[in-house]
């Protein structure tokens, strides 16, 4: 199948990439197939499950509903971009500590949604966490532990600041 390719530049996890992408390929496909960043997961392909959530110029989006070609010049953060070296991001640590991870397939997307939520609202209530993560499905349904993990991260960050 001959497909015209479009040149784009993407800053992914702090590093610039020059890529040739097909018009119909989603940001999700390009991250996974061309950049081999497979931490971002594919499930519903209609923006309903949130497994493909990444940060696009600092905002959480479902990367299955975005064409790679339309985000030329943008900055992307994926799950692989969290933490520093061997040091996990506090939210990742908290997910482990609270047993919020079961099969793990939805977790990268949920953590990215959680990062965005905490950035916008560093001290969310229980309900605000529910609202903020409502776009991410977890069929193992560790929702209670996930909420605890996010709340506890916020609490610890608050303590560190005060």
């Amino acid at each position: 199948m001959s497909t015209q390719k479009y040149p784009i530049k993407l800053e992914v996890n702090g590093e610039w990439h020059t890529l040739q992408v097909a018009a119909q390929h989603s940001l999700l496909q390009v991250l996974r197939d061309q950049l081999n960043l497979t931490g971002t997961k594919e499930c519903c392909d209609e923006g309903e499950c949130g497994a493909c959530t990444v940060l696009l110029n600092g905002r959480s989006v479902t990367s299955c509903l975005i064409l790679a070609v339309e985000v030329d010049g943008s900055s992307i953060t994926t799950i692989e971009g969290l933490g520093q070296g061997d040091q996990l991001d506090p939210l990742q640590e908290s997910f482990l500590e609270h047993g919020a991870v079961q099969c793990g397939f939805c977790i990268p997307g949920i953590i990215m949604s959680g990062k965005y939520l905490l950035k916008k609202n560093p001290k969310p209530t229980y309900e605000e966490v529910q609202e903020g993560l409502a776009g991410n499905l977890c069929r193992c349904a560790g929702y209670g532990q996930i909420i605890e993990a996010v709340l506890s991260t916020a609490e610890k960050a608050g303590e560190a600041q005060s």
Partner: peptide, 9 residues
């Protein structure tokens, strides 16, 4: 409308 992710787009 949708989720946070959808409203961001």
């Amino acid at each position: 409308v949708g989720s946070t992710q959808i409203r961001n787009r």
